[in-house]
Amino acid sequence: MTLEIITDPALSDTPHGFFTRAGGASSGVFKGLNCGYGSSDQHDIVSINRERVAAALDVPADRLVSVHQVHSADAVAVDGPLIRPVKADGLVTATPGVAISVLTADCQPVLFADARAGVVGAAHAGWKGALDGVLEATVRKMEELGATRANIAAVIGPSISQRNYEVGPEFMDRFLAVDPHFGRFFVQGRGDRLHFDLPGFGLQQLRHCGVGQASWTRHCTYDRSAQFYSYRRSVHNKEADYGRLIAAIRL
């Protein structure tokens, strides 16, 4: 089966892709292109899936670089394969031939590029990372490599949409404690339940960073089970585990 790769015109000068679950070797609840070693999928099968992603981006498998994601606001610069696991949720590079990647299953995968400066970035931005500043941290790290904010294009890939992201009042309270204006990213649901607009919040944070372009591909991971993995959908379906989507970019 052929890989399905979502791209965005804002990053057209830079090889990149938000990969769906199509074209992978995994089976069962992981059926498709599961790229997460942190899942209970077979390690060798995940490696095959990642090799397919690397080939699609025209890099060797060991040049498809990921970090150990921990929902932090930390970003790191890389120039090649990592010798040991690095805990972070954003990574940047100015090294040609290195593809940097993040894994998601409802959280925001965000790809960045300053094509003029030759600097790219990738961030895993769940609600906590986005609130704590992982997008800003990734932009700052790109600047350290020579990027200019006004020249950076940032694209949010497939993420859970507001209508499917139900939360409790204590969740909203954490946002309001940072900025009362963040209340605009919540709408009332049933009873005391609320619905949070994660991509909308991510877009606001990116624009607040001062990047030149910020957009969302408008794909909802929860809605399209044949196309995307979703942590929340797996919980609702009482599945034992879930796959991880990969998003990657290179110079």
Results as ranks from 00 to 15, higher is better:
R149I: 05
A154H: 00
N151P: 00
A150G: 12
K141F: 07
A153G: 08
R149M: 02
A153M: 09
S159P: 05
N164G: 08
P158D: 12
S159E: 02
I152K: 04
K141T: 15
L145K: 03
R140A: 10
S159I: 03
N164F: 14
M142Y: 03
Y165N: 13
A154G: 06
A150Q: 09
E144L: 12
I152R: 02
S159C: 10
N164A: 13
E143L: 13
K141R: 15
G146P: 02
N164D: 14
E143M: 12
A150W: 01
A147R: 02
T138R: 09
Q162H: 11
E144P: 06
A147N: 01
S159F: 00
G146D: 04
A153D: 10
E144N: 08
E143S: 09
A153N: 13
K141Y: 10
A150E: 14
L145H: 04
A153Y: 08
S159W: 04
L145R: 04
E144C: 09
A147T: 09
Y165P: 03
M142T: 04
I160A: 00
Q162T: 12
R163M: 14
A150N: 06
I152F: 03
E136I: 13
I160E: 01
N164H: 15
N164E: 15
V155H: 08
I156G: 08
S159K: 01
L145W: 03
M142E: 05
E143G: 10
K141G: 09
G157I: 13
I160N: 01
A153H: 11
N151W: 02
N151T: 01
R163W: 11
M142K: 02
A137V: 01
I160F: 01
G157S: 14
E143K: 07
I152H: 05
R163G: 11
R163I: 14
A147S: 05
E143W: 06
E136M: 15
L145Y: 02
Y165R: 08
Q162G: 10
N151R: 07
I160L: 01
A137M: 05
A150P: 01
T148E: 15
G157H: 12
A153V: 05
Q162Y: 12
